[in-house]
Amino acid sequence: MSLVIREAFLSFRRAPSLSILSIITIGFALFVVGLFGLVALNFKEALEEVGERVEVVVYLTRGTPETVALAAYDDILTFPEVESVDFVSADEALVEAREQLTEFQGLYSDLATNPLPSSLGIKLKPGFRNEESVRAVADRVSGFRFAEDIQFGDDWIATLDRVRNIAAIIGLVVGAAFALASIMIIGTTIRMTIIQRAREIGIMRLVGATDSFIRMPFLLEGVVKGALGGVAAVGLNYAVFELVNRTLLQASFFGTEHILLIVAFGILLGFFASVFSVRRHLRAV
């Protein structure tokens, strides 16, 4: 076992530039993936904030009794998409209008009858803040007799949906491309190490070392490089995050589980790249 560890680290000592190069490439590949993750993370948070404002507002026909409105309120709450319903009576609407629209205060106070309808504001659960669900809820609510008008921002909900989908697709494509690139780079560096160590491998075989024993230093080397690359990527991402945070806008950074995920991803990349490369190239020496 000690020989395995020694052999794995020997390649760092013997070919420091090659080792640093492969750590940098893994680090850089994961950095770009991480950078995208960071963008996606902040995008997602921003979208969630916007998504909270997705609302279907039902204006009730004048004269709808409050009991009917409250029955509808209970009914709508049972919809699977619905998070909360906010009943605003005509009187409350007037008070609100007076408060918010101070320029028209005089106008509103002079009214003999309240011109504003009562309404139900429907907020959807996080998973349903998309165009489809909004339309489904609006359609169902429009079946109520007392629903005079229904408002929902269908245009911008559609746009929001598209942006989110495009972001997810780009993330997957870019992430996959870079993962593939780093697998190829790690594979190539392992191949170089194997060629460089062909003599040692030949001697190991000659004296009766098993194939798995010969493979182990390379796998360990791949795992260590992957882990170091992952750590480097987190560091680079943090540097970018700090820079953006100080100069551009308030952003969020990864949580501990995301950081561990990046390092684990690096380890996984390093491991599979070396398994793949060792299997292919060890036979040739």
């Binding site: 030949g202 001697i203 075989r205 004296v207 009766g208 098993t210 194939d211």
Partner: peptide
């Protein structure tokens, strides 16, 4: 089988013209 080869080689000593030292 291939996996048996190391067992055999551990029982042999092999030297070459070019020494094959590290």
């Amino acid at each position: 089988p291939r996996r048996e080869i190391p067992k055999l080689r551990r029982r042999l000593g092999i030297v070459f013209q070019d020494f094959r030292l590290l």
